[in-house]
């Protein structure tokens, strides 16, 4: 196993940050921890990167214990903390050079690994990191984390606050790094990014609610999800809330996702009900549940 956690718990100032966390990441796997702010993602990353000591439980990274062998772990993992910790007053090139030196390597030695990413930011290599856009900072931070060719890469919310284009590019890069044999543990608050991981852990309030491949997680969802559209969305939600057989209703993109408390939804009946309440342009159709549907269902419990 590349990473393995066994019943890790950590309490901060009386508040339990993570509770009884156990999971394993296989070598070469792209593993996602999905959850909103405050779920405990960062605490988990800090425990695994030897920055925090867990109250209870054990964790092993690349075959080394996070408490006993912390020095060895620090030499062999790559870590990109949230908010792209770069030196804002150093240029792109200087940042890279600096991280290369402190890891006892050079830009040239592992250039192969970062080539693709670095080429995108190379035109701006004399620009100070503080003046880069979010997407550029993210790429530079990734280069810095990769410079010593780590076996395991920890990326804490690398795509937060970054626009969809940069996010897409970033995930493409992760896929290519994974193909080069690097194990990647990545966290994100964006549910749609879960689908891009091999396996994910859904996390909320310091606990893991589910661990599996995105596909299997979605398959486990017990209810049929219907997407419903109407001319007036807000009213649609309000009207659906009063429907006696409602189980849940959430806005989802263009439509709302609706689940019924019965096992079979009587579509004409629902359509009738909506029409009777003055809604127009009604569309009701069956759809695939998403990770987000699953997450919300589990978070409710």
């Amino acid at each position: 196993m590349s990473i393995s956690l066994h019943q890790i718990s950590k309490t901060y100032k009386g508040i339990s940050a993570v509770q009884d966390i156990s999971f394993e990441v296989k070598p070469g796997e792209l593993f996602g921890i999905i959850g909103p702010d405050g779920a405990g993602k960062t605490t988990l990353f800090r425990i695994l990167t030897t920055l925090l000591l867990a109250d209870t439980g054990t964790a092993v990274v690349a075959g080394m214990d996070v408490v006993e062998d912390y020095i060895a772990i620090r030499k062999s993992v790559g870590y990109m903390p949230g908010r792209f910790s770069l030196y804002q007053d150093l240029t792109v090139e200087e940042n890279l050079q600096f991280f290369a030196t402190i890891f006892g390597t050079t830009l040239e030695r592992n250039y192969e690994l970062i080539k693709e990413i670095y080429e995108q930011i190379e035109p701006f290599k004399t620009r100070r990191a503080g003046k880069l856009s979010g997407g550029m900072k993210q790429k530079l931070a990734l280069c810095c984390a990769l410079i010593h060719k780590p076996k395991v890469l920890f990326l804490d919310e690398p795509t937060t606050g970054v626009d969809p284009v940069s996010r897409k590019e970033f995930w493409d890069m992760l896929k290519r790094l994974q193909a080069k044999g690097i194990t990647i543990l990545v966290s994100t608050p964006y549910m749609d990014e879960a689908a891009l991981c091999d396996r994910v852990a859904l996390m909320q309030n310091g606990r893991i609610m589910e661990i599996d491949s995105p596909k299997k997680i979605v398959e486990k969802y017990p209810k049929a999800v219907y997407e419903i559209g109407a001319g007036e969305r807000h009213k649609l939600i309000q009207v659906l809330r009063d429907f006696p057989y409602l189980y849940s209703v959430y806005p989802f993109g263009e439509y709302v996702h609706y689940t019924d408390s019965r096992s079979d939804l009587d579509i004409p009946e629902l359509e009738e009900y909506l029409k009777a309440n003055g809604l127009t342009g009604i569309y009701i159709g069956l759809t695939e549940p998403t990770i987000e549907d699953v997450f919300m269902e589990m978070a409710k419990e």
């Binding site: 909103p36 702010d37 937060t160 606050g161 909320q204 807000h234 939600i237 987000e292």
Partner: peptide, 24 residues
């Protein structure tokens, strides 16, 4: 300006209902 960054999916939707309400 990016009012829901990092917010969990349920609260995010509650937030949007508040937006709808204000728009109404």
């Amino acid at each position: 300006d990016e009012p829901t960054g990092g917010v969990d999916p349920i609260t995010r939707r509650q937030f949007w209902e508040m937006i709808y309400h204000a728009a109404d």
